[in-house]
Protein backbone atom coordinates (compact mmCIF):
# COMPACT_ATOMS: atom_id res chain seq x y z
CA UNK A 1 0.00 0.00 0.00
CA UNK A 2 1.20 3.52 -0.67
CA UNK A 3 1.89 5.78 2.29
CA UNK A 4 -1.11 7.88 1.28
CA UNK A 5 -3.43 4.85 1.42
CA UNK A 6 -2.09 3.85 4.84
CA UNK A 7 -2.44 7.36 6.27
CA UNK A 8 -5.90 7.86 4.74
CA UNK A 9 -7.17 4.69 6.41
CA UNK A 10 -6.19 5.72 9.97
CA UNK A 11 -9.33 6.25 12.07
CA UNK A 12 -10.15 9.40 13.97
CA UNK A 13 -9.60 8.65 17.69
CA UNK A 14 -12.78 10.41 18.82
CA UNK A 15 -15.09 9.67 15.88
CA UNK A 16 -13.79 6.20 14.98
CA UNK A 17 -16.44 5.77 12.26
CA UNK A 18 -14.46 8.23 10.17
CA UNK A 19 -10.98 7.97 8.72
CA UNK A 20 -8.68 10.98 8.95
CA UNK A 21 -9.28 11.42 5.22
CA UNK A 22 -13.09 11.43 5.70
CA UNK A 23 -12.76 14.01 8.45
CA UNK A 24 -10.72 16.25 6.17
CA UNK A 25 -7.79 16.74 8.54
CA UNK A 26 -5.31 14.88 6.34
CA UNK A 27 -3.84 17.60 4.17
CA UNK A 28 -0.88 15.95 2.47
CA UNK A 29 1.19 12.76 2.34
CA UNK A 30 4.61 13.09 0.74
CA UNK A 31 6.82 10.08 0.10
CA UNK A 32 10.53 10.57 -0.43
CA UNK A 33 12.21 7.16 -0.54
CA UNK A 34 11.78 5.67 2.94
CA UNK A 35 10.88 9.02 4.44
CA UNK A 36 7.21 9.99 4.69
CA UNK A 37 5.93 13.42 5.65
CA UNK A 38 2.26 13.51 6.65
CA UNK A 39 0.56 16.87 7.10
CA UNK A 40 -2.54 17.17 9.26
CA UNK A 41 -4.58 20.08 10.63
CA UNK A 42 -6.41 20.34 13.97
CA UNK A 43 -10.21 20.58 14.04
CA UNK A 44 -10.19 22.86 17.13
CA UNK A 45 -7.14 24.68 18.55
CA UNK A 46 -7.33 22.71 21.78
CA UNK A 47 -8.35 19.36 20.34
CA UNK A 48 -6.50 16.79 22.47
CA UNK A 49 -7.01 14.15 19.77
CA UNK A 50 -4.32 15.76 17.64
CA UNK A 51 -1.50 14.14 19.61
CA UNK A 52 -3.32 10.83 19.40
CA UNK A 53 -3.68 11.19 15.62
CA UNK A 54 0.01 11.90 15.32
CA UNK A 55 0.85 8.75 17.28
CA UNK A 56 -1.64 6.62 15.30
CA UNK A 57 -0.25 7.82 11.98
CA UNK A 58 3.30 7.07 13.04
CA UNK A 59 2.31 3.64 14.32
CA UNK A 60 0.35 2.65 11.18
CA UNK A 61 3.03 3.85 8.77
CA UNK A 62 5.79 2.17 10.76
CA UNK A 63 3.80 -1.08 10.74
CA UNK A 64 3.43 -0.74 6.96
CA UNK A 65 7.20 -0.64 6.63
CA UNK A 66 7.95 3.07 6.45
CA UNK A 67 10.98 3.55 8.65
CA UNK A 68 11.08 7.31 8.84
CA UNK A 69 7.80 9.11 9.51
CA UNK A 70 7.31 12.79 10.21
CA UNK A 71 3.92 14.27 11.07
CA UNK A 72 3.52 18.00 10.56
CA UNK A 73 0.69 20.27 11.60
CA UNK A 74 -0.67 23.13 9.52
CA UNK A 75 -3.10 25.72 10.83
CA UNK A 76 -4.05 27.35 7.55
CA UNK A 77 -6.40 27.09 5.83
CA UNK A 78 -8.34 26.46 9.04
CA UNK A 79 -10.45 23.31 9.20
CA UNK A 80 -14.21 23.70 8.97
CA UNK A 81 -16.90 21.05 8.86
CA UNK A 82 -17.06 21.63 5.09
CA UNK A 83 -13.78 19.66 4.92
CA UNK A 84 -15.63 16.47 5.92
CA UNK A 85 -16.10 14.35 2.78
CA UNK A 86 -19.51 13.31 1.44
CA UNK A 87 -18.57 9.77 2.41
CA UNK A 88 -17.80 11.04 5.90
CA UNK A 89 -21.20 12.71 6.23
CA UNK A 90 -22.91 9.50 5.14
CA UNK A 91 -20.91 7.39 7.63
CA UNK A 92 -21.75 9.74 10.51
CA UNK A 93 -25.48 9.49 9.77
CA UNK A 94 -25.24 5.69 9.50
CA UNK A 95 -23.74 5.57 12.96
CA UNK A 96 -26.42 7.68 14.59
CA UNK A 97 -24.53 10.98 14.60
CA UNK A 98 -26.29 13.83 12.79
CA UNK A 99 -23.82 15.25 10.25
CA UNK A 100 -23.20 19.01 9.90
CA UNK A 101 -24.83 20.96 7.07
CA UNK A 102 -22.63 22.46 4.40
CA UNK A 103 -21.96 26.12 5.10
CA UNK A 104 -20.07 27.32 2.05
CA UNK A 105 -18.45 30.72 1.86
CA UNK A 106 -18.79 32.88 4.94
CA UNK A 107 -18.73 36.56 5.59
CA UNK A 108 -18.80 38.47 8.88
CA UNK A 109 -19.69 36.42 11.95
CA UNK A 110 -23.32 37.08 12.90
CA UNK A 111 -24.41 37.23 16.53
CA UNK A 112 -26.97 34.50 17.29
CA UNK A 113 -29.22 35.42 20.17
CA UNK A 114 -31.31 32.28 19.75
CA UNK A 115 -30.16 28.72 19.17
CA UNK A 116 -30.35 28.12 15.41
CA UNK A 117 -33.71 26.81 14.19
CA UNK A 118 -33.87 23.05 13.93
CA UNK A 119 -32.78 21.94 10.52
CA UNK A 120 -31.04 18.92 11.95
CA UNK A 121 -32.75 15.65 11.07
CA UNK A 122 -32.88 12.84 13.61
CA UNK A 123 -30.38 10.21 12.42
CA UNK A 124 -32.75 7.42 13.53
CA UNK A 125 -36.19 8.37 12.23
CA UNK A 126 -35.41 11.34 9.99
CA UNK A 127 -37.78 13.66 11.82
CA UNK A 128 -37.00 17.37 11.68
CA UNK A 129 -38.74 17.90 15.01
CA UNK A 130 -35.48 17.93 16.96
CA UNK A 131 -34.21 20.31 19.61
CA UNK A 132 -30.88 21.19 21.13
CA UNK A 133 -30.22 19.77 24.60
CA UNK A 134 -26.72 21.11 25.00
CA UNK A 135 -24.54 23.30 22.80
CA UNK A 136 -21.49 21.30 23.84
CA UNK A 137 -21.12 17.53 23.81
CA UNK A 138 -18.69 14.76 24.59
CA UNK A 139 -16.07 16.22 22.24
CA UNK A 140 -15.32 19.76 21.11
CA UNK A 141 -16.96 19.17 17.73
CA UNK A 142 -20.36 17.90 18.86
CA UNK A 143 -23.61 19.22 20.35
CA UNK A 144 -26.34 17.13 21.96
CA UNK A 145 -29.89 17.04 20.55
CA UNK A 146 -33.08 15.07 21.08
CA UNK A 147 -35.79 13.98 18.65
CA UNK A 148 -39.37 15.06 19.35
CA UNK A 149 -40.84 12.06 17.51
CA UNK A 150 -38.81 8.98 18.38
CA UNK A 151 -37.65 10.66 21.62
CA UNK A 152 -34.07 9.49 21.20
CA UNK A 153 -31.20 11.78 22.14
CA UNK A 154 -28.41 11.97 19.57
CA UNK A 155 -25.17 13.75 18.86
CA UNK A 156 -24.73 16.37 16.16
CA UNK A 157 -21.43 17.43 14.63
CA UNK A 158 -21.94 21.18 14.81
CA UNK A 159 -21.19 23.41 11.85
CA UNK A 160 -18.15 25.60 12.23
Amino acid sequence: MSAREVAAAVLDPELPVLTLADLGVLRDVHEDGDHVVVTITPTYSGCPALDEMRADLTRSLTAAGYTSVEVRTVLAPAWTTDWISDDGLRKLAEHGIAPPSRIGRRGPVPLNLEPPAARVACPRCGSLRTRELSRFGSTACKALRACGDCKEPFEHVKEI
Binding site: S45, L75, A76, A78, W79
Partner: peptide, 8 residues
Amino acid sequence: AVAAKGVK
Protein backbone atom coordinates in the same frame (compact mmCIF):
# COMPACT_ATOMS: atom_id res chain seq x y z
CA ALA B 1 -3.30 31.35 11.26
CA VAL B 2 -4.01 31.15 15.01
CA ALA B 3 -6.56 33.95 14.60
CA ALA B 4 -8.32 32.35 11.62
CA LYS B 5 -8.74 29.18 13.63
CA GLY B 6 -9.80 31.00 16.80
CA VAL B 7 -12.51 33.09 15.11
CA LYS B 8 -14.80 30.09 14.67
